[in-house]
């Protein structure tokens, strides 16, 4: 630690000023705009927004998809993380690398693959028809299912990474110790693994949930205008109707939800202690 704090401030300030001035300030203006109707401050914009059935549907759908994707990620994530930490070091590193890999690939490419798989003439339909289970192809693309699958594939790695690092920090042999003391696997999970890895779960859950809230490409490509989520709705409102009030409201909702998801999960984690 150095004593000259002014020097430190001088080093840190450019970054803060840059982000504050060129990033947060414009965003703040945009959010503020939603409170202005015809030149005067008012909550009318919010009231109008909340009363529209489409907006309600999209809002609830976004929450629902975020929640269930996070939930299923957690389930798959625990299964996977448990298997991964039991591997030897070498294959653990390899599997871990393969889990991280998709994160580094363009989400456009990642989502695009699902068109090929889920489309009308895609692999799934072909297979189902080939097996004689269907006569005509069914619609999978542009349904919530498609968006759900796309989001799950996009964000599952974040959950696995969080849980694997949490489990790596488990004290050695606690699971074996719990087993020896007579706990069954369900008890081992609820009494030992879950309490000891809850930080990882909170971390992973926040990343996945907020990731889903703010994902654009997946709902855009796999949901289209039939399955709007908040981000695609925002894009549509601005592009189609020049509706900056709705845009500001959606932006506020997204930021508030991302932020509170994070805070809520933190709270839950510390309350359990």
């Amino acid at each position: 630690m150095f004593q000259n704090n002014r020097e430190g401030l001088f080093l840190a300030l450019p970054a803060a000023v840059f982000t504050g001035l060129l990033f947060l300030l414009p965003v703040g203006f945009l959010l503020a705009e939603a409170f202005k109707v015809e030149g005067s401050w008012s909550l009318q914009g919010y009231i109008d927004f909340a009363l529209k059935p489409l907006n309600q549907t999209v809002f609830l759908r976004t929450l629902k998809l975020g929640f269930f994707v996070a939930l299923l990620s957690a389930i798959i994530g625990y299964l996977c993380a448990f298997c991964i930490i039991n591997l030897n070091d070498k294959s653990r590193g390899r599997v871990f690398g393969l889990v991280i890999l998709p994160l580094m690939i363009s989400p456009v490419a990642r989502t695009y693959a699902w068109i090929v798989i889920l489309g009308r003439t895609g692999i799934v339909n072909d297979a189902l028809i080939g097996m004689g289970l269907l006569d005509t192809p069914i619609r999978i693309l542009f349904t919530e299912t498609a968006v759900f699958i796309g989001l799950l594939q996009l964000f599952l790695p974040l959950m696995i990474i969080s849980l694997v690092s949490a489990m790596e920090n488990l004290p050695k042999d606690v699971i074996a110790a719990a087993r020896v003391l007579g706990a069954n696997w369900f008890q081992v999970f609820t009494k030992v693994i879950l309490p000891l890895t809850k930080d990882g779960l909170v971390m992973g859950g926040t990343l996945v949930f907020t990731g889903c809230l703010t994902a654009y490409i997946t709902p855009a490509i796999l949901g289209g205008s039939k399955v709007l989520m908040l981000e695609t709705l925002l894009y549509q409102r601005v592009n189609v109707a020049n509706d900056f009030i709705s845009a500001g409201i959606i932006a506020t909702i997204l930021i508030v939800m991302s932020f509170s998801a994070n805070q809520l999960l933190k709270r839950i984690a510390s309350a359990r202690q």
Partner: peptide, 8 residues
């Protein structure tokens, strides 16, 4: 969210 940044 990035979309908001772009718009702002």
């Amino acid at each position: 969210p990035g979309i908001i940044v772009g718009l702002a």
